[in-house]
């Protein structure tokens, strides 16, 4: 499934990287611990988190996540968003909690 389809089905806001939402999603990984994500996320997965600082982007891009979903209505910090726009990396946002959005993502990509 493409990121764009996930965006549509989960009603996510696309804050950056709209030019790259045609990429394939291989799964999801939900965590707020950066080293956990660093060690365990797999290529092409969507990372679901409530963290909003620039290091999220560094980890997501280093580990080739397909996108990041920021939950709980949180907004990315200005420097995170600026870099995401510059790099064309999809940062998505939702008012829902990590549990709900993870469940919905799981249901549509299995």
């Amino acid at each position: 499934m493409k990121i764009s389809e996930v965006v549509k089905q989960l009603s996510l806001d696309v804050l950056s990287g709209s030019e790259n939402i045609g990429a394939e999603v291989t799964g999801g990984y939900t965590s707020d611990l950066l080293s956990d994500v660093m060690g365990n996320i797999k290529d092409g997965q969507i990372w679901i988190t409530m963290q909003t600082h620039k290091n999220v982007l560094a980890v997501a891009m280093l580990r080739e996540a397909s996108a990041v979903i920021i939950v709980n209505g949180n907004k990315p910090d200005a420097d995170m968003l600026e870099k995401a726009i510059k790099e064309g990396f999809p940062v998505l946002a939702t008012n829902e909690r990590a549990f709900e959005i993870s469940g919905k993502l799981y249901a549509i990509i299995q």
Binding site: D32, L34, S35, G39, Q51, N55
Partner: peptide, 10 residues
């Protein structure tokens, strides 16, 4: 910030 989980060196 989500660092300091004691997973870095491992």
């Amino acid at each position: 910030m989500g660092f300091g989980a004691g997973m870095g060196l491992p």
